[in-house]
Simulated assay, not measured.
Amino acid sequence: MTEADLPAVMEIERVTFPLDAWSEGMMRGELDEIPRTRHYVVALVDDEIVAYAGLAAAADQADVQTIAVLEKHQRNGIGSAMLTELLAEARRRGAREIFLEVRADNPRAQSVYRRFGFEEIGTRRRYYDDGTDAIMMRKRLDD
């Protein structure tokens, strides 16, 4: 992902996460950390950005920052491909485990993460702007 991708990425962000979308400033801050501690990718279909994902990594830990796929492109493997790339990058950077938060009211995403070997490790109460809890998940990368 580059700054040139931001208009499309921000539109996906607002549509996918209407209640707690990141601001453009927040996203620019993430891009400023590439490649030092961040890794962000986009997915294209017919030359259109339809998804993006981001990873934060430091020392032996990594965090999935975000994964978003336009609704009309969901359920066709793009999200899984994005997560696969983030896991591979975490391993390349020497991470031994990777963490994420997922909305408690998003069972579909939780199911995808479980399928990839993530396990629930706790709950962050009222984590999201609308008061929804976040389920914290972890995957050991040395498995």
Rank of each mutant, 00 (worst) to 15 (best):
V9D: 00
Y52R: 04
D133Q: 06
M1S: 06
Q110P: 01
D32V: 08
Q74N: 04
V69H: 01
D129A: 13
T132W: 11
V102L: 05
I121V: 03
S80Q: 09
N106I: 00
T37C: 12
R14E: 06
R96A: 14
A43M: 09
D129Y: 14
R126M: 10
K139L: 14
F118Q: 03
A62G: 14
G117E: 05
M136N: 15
G94L: 11
D133M: 08
A57N: 09
V69P: 02
I135H: 01
E48Y: 06
I67T: 03
R140V: 12
A51P: 15
F116Q: 06
I49H: 00
N106P: 01
E11N: 13
A21F: 02
I78T: 09
R108A: 11
V64T: 06
R103Q: 02
R75M: 11
G131R: 09
T84P: 12
L31I: 05
W22H: 07
A58Q: 09
E30C: 01
R126N: 10
T2G: 04
L31Y: 05
A56L: 14
R103E: 04
M1H: 06
R103W: 04
M82D: 03
D133C: 07
D60V: 11
V69C: 07
F116N: 04
K139A: 11
K72N: 06
E13P: 01
D47N: 12
L44C: 13
G122S: 08
S80C: 14
I12E: 03
R14H: 08
L141F: 01
H73K: 05
A51H: 13
R92D: 12
P7S: 03
E13G: 00
M82S: 12
V42K: 10
A88C: 12
Y128N: 03
R38M: 10
L44K: 13
G77S: 07
P107L: 01
G54N: 02
D130F: 07
G77L: 12
Y52A: 01
R92C: 07
F99M: 11
F99R: 06
G79E: 03
L100F: 02
Y128T: 05
R14G: 09
R14M: 10
I121Q: 07
L87K: 08
R75A: 12
H73P: 13
A51V: 12
A109L: 03
H39R: 15
N106C: 02
R115T: 10
V15E: 15
Q61F: 10
F17Q: 07
G79A: 01
V42H: 02
L44H: 14
L86Q: 05
P35N: 04
F17M: 00
D20T: 09
R140I: 12
G122M: 12
Y113N: 00
E85A: 15
E13A: 00
I34M: 02
F118G: 04
P7A: 05
H73M: 11
A88Y: 14
P107S: 01
V42L: 05
M136C: 15
M27W: 00
K139Q: 13
R103Y: 05
T37I: 15
R126K: 11
T16N: 13
T123G: 14
R114T: 08
R125A: 10
M10Q: 02
G94H: 13
L44W: 15
D47P: 08
R124S: 10
A68W: 01
D32M: 14
D5K: 06
L31N: 02
A62T: 03
H39Q: 15
M27R: 00
